[in-house]
């Protein structure tokens, strides 16, 4: 909410929104996914007819890509298609509200001091969540939004590789999932940055959980909390 306000929007909280149904859907249980997602769909369409901004890459992908399929052939089909069209991932949305400047190639050198308010001097390392990266094409948007917040960022090596969360994959195949997280954490840590930023909370929870267990000194922040630092003049 703060992030959206900082970008010059007047967001409204969707009270009844709860779960998009992804855990059940990705496990192959469409009926159950529908049951859980229906109240959320209802709440979103009741709340407003404007854009629906979602602060999680994978939920945004679920709602915008899979909801039309999930609700196809049900009385909610048309509603789901409408909401899908209006659903935007947070950083994509924020960056679309910014003046359209091209992103500079990371790592970015000196912008931190110029844009206000400068949040911190240390650069952060970006973890691209798969759904945001491939499903929503959010990689560039995330970077534009972060740059506008005045935060310097670094792209880690292997940035396009999955961190191993994958929803319930993380518990159905825990060993492979953790091995993937370990490799990802090593790559993130190799940048020397202390803070990992992503637009997907679930990746962060997984990486943070593993980093904690390994005793790694990494911090994990959702992109939203950095976007709160976007200057008042940044919005259109």
């Amino acid at each position: 909410m703060q992030a959206l306000r900082a970008a010059g929007c007047e967001p409204k909280d969707v009270g009844g929104a709860f779960c998009c149904g992804q855990p059940a859907y990705n496990s192959g249980f469409a009926k159950e996914a529908r049951r859980v997602a229906k109240p959320t769909l209802r709440a979103v369409s009741k709340a407003s007819s404007g854009d629906c901004v979602v602060a999680s890459g994978s939920c945004a992908a679920m709602m915008s890509h899979y909801w039309p399929e999930l609700f196809a052939g049900t009385p909610q089909a048309a509603e789901a298609r409408r909401v899908a069209e209006r659903t935007k991932e947070l950083t994509v949305y924020v960056s679309s509200r910014l003046e359209s400047e091209p992103v500079n190639d990371a790592p970015q050198a000196e912008s931190a001091a110029e844009v206000h308010p400068p949040l911190a001097e240390e650069p952060v390392v970006i973890h691209d969540a798969c759904h945001a990266l491939r499903g929503l094409g959010a990689a560039e948007a995330t970077r534009r939004a972060l740059a506008a917040s005045g935060r310097r960022y670094v792209n880690p090596p292997g940035s396009e590789r999955c961190c191993g969360f994958g929803g319930l994959f993380s518990v159905k195949m825990p060993d492979v999932s953790v091995a993937m997280a370990d490799e990802k954490l090593d790559l993130l840590a190799s940048t020397g940055c202390e803070t990992v930023v992503s637009c997907d909370l679930s990746c962060l929870v997984h990486l943070e959980g593993r980093a904690g267990r390994r005793g790694l000194a990494l911090r994990f922040e959702h992109a939203a909390s950095l976007l709160e630092g976007i200057g008042p003049g940044a919005g259109k």
Binding site: A24, N26, S27, G28, F29, K31, E32, R35, V36
Partner: peptide, 23 residues
Amino acid sequence: LRLERAPESATATRRWGFRLWSL
């Protein structure tokens, strides 16, 4: 493949788990 096969072939725990969770 998951959507087609899980509802019949998943373990009973998993089927009931999702059913109860969603209810």
